[in-house]
Nucleic acid binder design. Structure first.
Length: 277
DNA sequence: AACGTTGCCAACCGCCATGCT
DNA sequence: TAGCATGGCGGTTGGCAACGT
């Protein structure tokens, strides 16, 4: 349809905003709000297009914008959410009050992508060949699927007295499980309060081959897992359903202090029917 | 000191979804 | 229901500063 970019109109300024322009925009929005971005610059006396005004406001001038470096917690959150949501920056930003999608996108591309490379396990160790090519965000694929996609998080809480996670000496762990609704198509599942005496495994390709093979002991170890959503819904998922063909992709190994967990995208085609949320 | 390279980040671009007429 | 206007989103770009040679 070729609608011309609004800024192509003659006489409209582009490029960095001046403090004076910022002040005009802030004052106008404080007094009048921003009901119509297209009309706003004319009303405010700015030689900018509405789109530029909106971006400047939402990304920089909004009073609730949190400026400054990202904390480690925020970075971890972004990494986790990115594993779940892919490049859905606005959805990620919604989980980080005061941060904008643009800012998060920049941080991801400049810092976190590199950081993640350092500790990410071998990319896509169990990415099954069927219906998937080898690139593209896992979640956008997932959310485009007609079936629900679950993200299963296996979390091991390690006793501080035991050696490092890669060591086979770890003698006990507790697995946790909860479900939170991420969006219409995704949930995060964590195991909850399930005793496990298995060693904390070294995660690599062979781990998933072993664990997810048809006769794996992992999925059969815990027959049912209680999961909750928003503290209201409780369902039981039979772990025995988690067979290799259900697992879309192992994503990131996450760690902080004593905790380690792994995200796994799980197709639910063969899982039991779940109640409506 | 001058020049080239790299990294960062604000801003822009184009597409899509939604709402209105 | 179609067409248009607008807002929102993700990808990309361009300018600037820091750093290296």
């Amino acid at each position: 349809m070729g609608r011309a970019p609004c800024c192509e109109k003659m006489g409209l300024k582009k490029g960095p905003w001046t403090p004076e322009e910022d002040q005009i925009l802030i004052s106008f929005i404080q007094q009048n709000g921003h009901g119509n971005w297209r009309a706003l610059p004319k009303q405010a006396g700015l030689l900018r297009c509405g789109k530029s005004c909106r971006l400047r406001w939402t990304n920089y001038l909004r009073p609730d914008i949190k400026r400054g470096n990202f904390t480690k917690e925020e970075e971890d959150t972004i990494i986790q959410l990115h594993e779940m949501l892919g490049n859905r920056w606005s959805a990620i930003a919604a989980k980080l009050p005061g941060r904008t999608d643009n800012e998060i996108k920049n941080v991801w591309h400049t810092h976190l992508k590199k950081k993640l490379k350092d500790y990410k396990p071998p990319q896509n160790p169990k990415r099954h060949s069927k219906n998937h090519d080898s690139k593209g965000p896992t979640t956008s694929e997932s959310s485009n699927n007609s079936h629900l996609t679950f993200i299963y998080t296996q979390k091991h809480i390690i006793d501080s007295s035991v050696p490092a996670p890669n060591s086979p000496q770890i003698s006990s762990s507790t697995e946790m499980s909860t479900v939170t609704l991420v969006d219409d198509h995704q949930m995060v599942i964590k195991q909850e309060e399930m005793e496990s005496s298995e060693y904390f495994p070294e995660i690599d390709e062979s781990f998933w081959t072993d664990k997810l093979s048809t006769d794996n002991n992992w999925s059969n170890t815990h027959d049912h897992v209680m999961v909750t959503a928003d503290q209201e819904l409780q369902v039981q998922l039979p772990f025995s359903s988690l067979k290799e063909e259900n697992v879309d992709m192992l994503t990131t190994k996450m760690e902080d202090d004593m905790d380690f967990w792994y995200n796994v995208f799980i197709k639910t085609d063969d899982l039991p029917e779940l109640p409506e949320f």
